[in-house]
Each structure stands twice: as structure tokens, then as C-alpha cells.
Design a protein around this nucleic acid. Structure first.
Lengths: 133, 133
DNA sequence: CTTGACCTTGTAGTTACTACAGGATACATA
DNA sequence: TATGTATCCTGTAGTAACTACAAGGTCAAG
């Protein structure tokens, strides 16, 4: 049988913020839960599992939209490995692109920093290069 | 003498969106410009220079807050190379951290993708791993 | 029976824009 | 002169994914 939890327990167990859990419900990523007589949200093991899934996906940089796509494939029950692979590969490509952009930034920043005297003087090659042209 | 420009020309010259230019003004990153008799914003070479600076900084991933710090140092006229260096180095460290986070994500994503059959079957190791525990 | 922990809703703030709506102005052409 | 169209104006709302309240209800323990 499945154990029932209040939102605080679900939060502790999944390490997802209470506010975030309510936010996910509003976004239709988490299903509307049962309520106690006093109106409190009641969750079960399936919710723990789903929220952990969402949390892991977020940790891998998937957007909520992408997570919804993954979840609706799973919810419909008729997903194929190929479909999941495609979504994941697309996301992985996005991540790679972001890394490249950031590495380009890093390169320029490091170069600017290198040329810097770092002194208590009112001339700075960083400012000069950014203000040039 | 400095040439005066309307917002559209400033936009073309700096490749910064018109809406973005007005946004920067509202954020006090760009100074309030002069106005024509009909109320149109009038810019000059100093604005071109400043907006180019902002644009480059954005391209290097500086936040508007960071850019404001840089600009106010410059505006006050009493900045030192050391101060600029510090702001830049801090930002560079942020960028490095972001890169590392993304590389971790990439690693996990690639591993998941590798284990994938990519087939038209209803079992997927990606889903399995994300739903496990 | 009160205290404190926990829950509820709803709204506003964050970042850096972007996208309108609805209206005024400027200039060239018919 | 009329008209078209390009440009400008203000102000508001939407985007992503939360986070942070405010103001109030509920529950268990001492």
C-alpha cells in the first residue's frame, strides 16, 4: 500500500521546495492531489516518483516544457525509446551549444584579464578594449 | 562635432533592438536623451559608444547589474585597473562555474543516450534511469 | 488554551528582454 | 492636398522558473 504525505514531507523527501511543488501543480506538471478534510494536499508514492523524475530532469537542464513532453509520452503509455532518445539528444545538443558560447566568453574574458595591470591606476585595458571603436 | 541620431539609427548602428534601447533607458543604464520638438529621442556619438560597450559586455555574459557597476566606476571617473579587474575576474569565475555545471549535465546526458536502443520499442533506459529509486 | 509548526490562497518580484496596442509625426509621392 | 508608409511615442503584458511574502486557517503538544 502507498503511504500518504503532506506537502512538507514530500518536499523533504524530494528536496523540492514547497512553493515549487505548488508551482508545478499550477503548471500541470504534477497532478492535482487529493485533499484532507481541512483542505491540505495529500500525496502518495507515485507523486514522490514523479517529482523525483522532474527534479532529476531539471538537474540535467531540461526545461519544464521538455519535461512535460517526456511525461506526457510516459503518461500516454505509448512512448518508444526512439522518441525519448530524440528529445534527449536535442536537449544534449542545446547544452553543448551553451557550453561553446560560454567557452568563447571565457576565452575573451581571460585574455582581457591577462592584459590587466591590476594596479591602482586609472587606466585599464579591459575598459579600453570594451570602449574601443 | 557629434552627429545626432534617432533611435532607429542608433539601433542599426549598434545592432541593439529599439525596444531594448528604451528598456536600457528605463533601467538607467543609458542616460535620458535629448528630445526633438516632436518628442523623439535624440542621441549622439557618446551614446553610440556607451551602447556598444553595454552590448559587448552583454555578449560576454555580464549582467546588467554588473555592467552598471562597471559604468558607474567609469562615469565617476575615479576607477582603478584593480577594481575593473576584480569585477571581470569574478564574472569570469561565474562563467567557469556555469561551464562546469553544463559539462556535468552533458556527461550524464551522453551516457544516457549511449545506453539507448533508439528503437521503436516501449522500453527506454533513459526513462528507466530517470524514474529509478 | 495558547504556542508554534505547518498548511492555505493569492500576488508580486526576479532577469533581460520582446511583442504588442493605439496613437502621433515625418516625408515622399500622386 | 491627400495619402501612404515608415518611424516614432507610451504603456502594458508576456516569457522561464521559480521565490518571497502577506494574511489567514489548522493541528498537536504542553
Amino acid at each position: 500500500m502507498t503511504k500518504s504525505l503532506l506537502i512538507g514531507e514530500l518536499s523533504t523527501r524530494t528536496r523540492v521546495n514547497i512553493e515549487t511543488i505548488r508551482f508545478y501543480e499550477k503548471q500541470n506538471i504534477l497532478p492535482v492531489p487529493a485533499r484532507s478534510a481541512a483542505g491540505r494536499r495529500i500525496y502518495d508514492d507515485a507523486d514522490v516518483k514523479r517529482l523525483n523524475f522532474i527534479h532529476r530532469c531539471r538537474g540535467l537542464g531540461f526545461s519544464l516544457k521538455e519535461i512535460m513532453s517526456l511525461l506526457s509520452l510516459v503518461d500516454d503509455g505509448n512512448y518508444t525509446c526512439k522518441q525519448i532518445h530524440e528529445l534527449t539528444a536535442t536537449h544534449a545538443a542545446d547544452v553543448k551549444e551553451k557550453i561553446q558560447t560560454l567557452q568563447q566568453m571565457e576565452l575573451v574574458l581571460e585574455e582581457m584579464i591577462e592584459h590587466c595591470s591590476k594596479g591602482d591606476v586609472p587606466e585599464c585595458p579591459i575598459i579600453d578594449s570594451l570602449f574601443s571603436n
